[in-house]
C-alpha cells in the first residue's frame, strides 16, 4: 500500500520521466557528432515517438537513455540525460536496467535462453532475486502478455509476434517505469506490427508505463502517440503533439511519410485546428468540413 502511495506521489510531483538537456555525443573514432544539442523531455505515462531517417541519430538517443551510451559506447559526451531523476552518466547500466526496459529491433538477438520462461527470468536472475520471487514475477509477466502457454517452448519455435512478446515480457519483468522500443515493427508483417503497437499502447495504459518508441511509419503510431520528436542529422528538427508535428511544413525533406489521410487533409488546405489522424475519424468529420 505504502508503495502505491509513494508511486502516486512521485508521479504527481516529478512528472518528468526522461529529460535530455543539451545532450551531444560523438562516438569514439568518429568526427561527426551522432547527436548534437538534443533537448527534450518525456513525461510520466507519455507515449513519445522518435522519427527520422536511418542514421539520423534516433538509436543514439535511445541508447543514451539506458546508459549504453556512454557506459558501453565511449565517446565525447556533453550535456546531461536524466532518467527518473538519475543522471545516466553516473548510474551503472544495471541500475538503469531496473527502470528502463529496452526492446531491440530484432527480438531474436535478445532472447538468450532455451525456454521462454527462463529467458523472461534472465534479468531477475542477474539481479540476484530469490528463486521464489523470480518464479512469481516471471509468471506475472507471462500472464500479462498472454504467453503462459509458451513457458516451456524453445524461442526458435516461436513466431515473430510471439518472440516480440517474449522480449517485452523479459524487460517488463524487472518492473521498469519506462519502456524503450527501437523500431520494434520494422521486421514484422503489417498484422503483427499493428499487434505490437496496440500491445504497447495497452501496456502504457494498464501499467502507466512511459513509452519511447522509434518508428518512421507515422501512419502506424500517430494515433497512439502523445508526442512526436523528429530527428534530423543528430538534432531535433521538430517536437510536439502529433497534430502539431503532422501539420508542420517540410516533413518530406526529413524523410518522413505523412499518413495519407493526413496528407489529404493538408492538401485540402487545413492549416490550423486539429486534424484527424486515421481514416475513421476523418470520414466522421467530412460532413462537418463542408458545412
Amino acid at each position: 500500500m505504502r508503495l502505491v502511495i509513494t508511486r502516486i506521489l512521485v508521479i504527481s510531483l516529478e512528472r518528468v520521466a526522461v529529460e535530455f538537456n543539451d545532450f551531444s555525443f560523438t562516438y569514439a573514432g568518429s568526427t561527426k557528432p551522432a547527436a548534437s544539442h538534443v533537448t527534450f523531455t518525456v513525461g510520466e505515462g507519455d507515449v513519445a515517438v522518435l522519427a527520422g531517417l536511418s542514421g539520423s541519430g534516433k538509436s543514439t538517443i535511445l541508447r543514451a537513455i539506458n546508459g549504453l551510451i556512454p557506459h558501453i559506447y565511449p565517446g565525447e559526451y556533453s550535456g546531461s540525460v536524466k532518467v527518473e531523476g538519475m543522471t545516466v552518466q553516473e548510474t551503472p547500466t544495471y541500475e538503469l536496467a531496473k527502470k528502463v526496459g529496452f526492446l531491440f529491433q530484432n527480438p531474436e538477438n535478445q532472447i538468450f535462453m532455451f525456454t521462454v520462461e527462463r529467458d523472461i527470468a534472465f534479468g531477475l536472475e542477474n539481479m540476484g532475486y530469490d528463486p521464489k520471487v523470480i518464479r512469481e514475477k516471471t509468471d506475472w509477466a507471462m500472464d500479462l502478455l498472454g504467453i503462459r502457454d509458451l513457458a516451456k517452448r524453445s524461442p526458435s519455435e516461436l513466431s515473430d509476434g510471439q518472440k516480440q512478446r517474449v522480449a517485452i515480457a523479459g524487460s517488463l519483468v524487472m518492473d521498469p517505469t519506462i519502456l524503450v522500443l527501437d523500431e520494434p515493427t520494422s521486421l514484422l508483417d503489417p498484422h503483427t506490427a499493428l499487434e505490437v503497437v496496440r500491445l504497447t499502447k495497452e501496456l502504457n495504459k494498464r501499467l502507466g508505463l512511459t513509452v519511447i518508441l522509434v518508428e518512421h511509419r507515422l501512419e502506424l503510431v500517430s494515433t497512439i502517440a502523445s508526442k512526436i520528436i523528429v530527428v534530423k542529422d543528430g538534432s531535433i528538427w521538430i517536437q510536439g503533439t502529433p497534430q502539431e508535428v503532422l501539420l508542420s511544413d517540410g516533413l518530406e525533406e526529413v524523410g518522413l511519410s505523412l499518413p495519407p489521410v493526413v496528407e489529404v487533409q493538408r492538401k485540402l488546405g487545413l492549416k490550423s485546428g486539429g486534424i484527424a489522424l486515421d481514416v475513421e475519424d476523418f470520414v466522421k468529420e467530412v460532413p462537418r468540413l463542408w458545412r
Binding site: 547500466t93 538468450f112 542477474n126
Partner: peptide, 13 residues
C-alpha cells in the same frame, strides 16, 4: 546486439 541486450537486462549486476 546480443551484448547490448545483455547489458540492458542487468547482466553482471
Amino acid at each position: 546486439e546480443l551484448a547490448e541486450a545483455m547489458e540492458s537486462r542487468g547482466y553482471g549486476a
